[in-house]
């Protein structure tokens, strides 16, 4: 992982893909009957369908980072090294950042389609709870001074929280109606109404955002590692 974080090719790929998604996502017109290359023109969504290239990939990036954090926590408990702990913490922190971005983009989208920034939607609440859980994780980390103890407790909380959270995310939306596509008789975006044009931009955007989030998380983790080493040397 350490070597992977230092490589350049996927960072360049991230920027290229995101450039492609941003330019293309705004350039391509909606379907009005004549265009060859167009996005689907859906009733309520209208032009805001372009948010699909931001909102959804950001959630994917968050889930991806939190998953990495979870994996590093497991691997810490089975074979403790302080590096694994800093990986778990860094991925979780940048994961929260992308979660917040996902919430912001979602709120703006909700305002223009559902009429309110916040609706009582199980997925929204799930997202909010997820943010709370991981903020609690950060508070737990900051409340313990001893490095080894902190790593141990944080890892065990992280595993506990992630499993509970995933169970929640998968179960709860099935209980009540959701305004989100594909639930409760909403016009399905199922398979995202992804017509091929949208897909052409959606997949690059997903990979691009995930890679960008990895880049940021990598920098954050490496900076923290350097800081820790400098502190140790001082002592």
């Amino acid at each position: 992982m350490n070597n992977f974080l230092k490589q350049y090719w996927w960072k360049a790929l991230a920027i290229v893909l995101l450039l492609f998604a941003i330019i293309g996502g705004l350039w391509v017109p909606l379907y009005h009957g004549t265009e060859d290359l167009s996005f689907p023109n859906l009733a309520i969504l209208n032009e805001s369908i372009r948010n699909l290239l931001y909102h959804v990939p950001m959630w994917f990036a968050m889930v991806f980072l939190l998953l990495l954090s979870f994996i590093y926590s497991i691997s810490y408990l089975s074979r403790p090294t302080i590096e694994k702990d800093s990986y778990a913490a860094g991925f979780a922190e940048i994961g929260i950042l992308f979660g917040a971005l996902g919430i912001f983009t979602g709120m703006i989208w909700a305002k223009s389609t559902w009429g309110a920034f916040w609706t009582n939607d199980p997925k929204l609440n799930g997202a909010a709870i997820g943010m709370l859980i991981y903020l609690a994780y950060i508070i737990l980390r900051s409340s313990v001074d001893d490095e080894v103890k902190r790593a141990k407790l944080a890892a065990s909380y992280n595993i506990f929280a992630f499993v509970m959270y995933i169970a929640f995310i998968f179960v709860i939306p099935r209980l009540t109606d959701s305004l989100h596509p594909g639930n409760g008789g909403n016009p399905a975006f199922s398979s995202y109404d992804l017509d091929n044009t949208l897909r052409l931009f959606f997949y690059p955007a997903t990979i691009g955002w995930i890679a960008l989030s990895m880049w940021m998380a990598g920098l954050w983790i490496r900076a923290n590692n350097i800081k820790r080493k400098l502190d140790e040397n001082e002592i």
């Binding site: 705004l26 032009e47 805001s48 372009r50 948010n51 931001y54 950042l97 917040a100 971005l101 912001f104 983009t105 703006i108 223009s112 940021m216 954050w220």
Partner: peptide, 20 residues
């Protein structure tokens, strides 16, 4: 980190100001 955040957020706010 805040600066990065602000940058990215501004990306959206500009793009949404237009969609409105």
């Amino acid at each position: 980190l805040v600066a990065i955040f602000a940058f990215i957020f501004s990306v959206f706010s500009t793009s949404y100001a237009q969609t409105m």
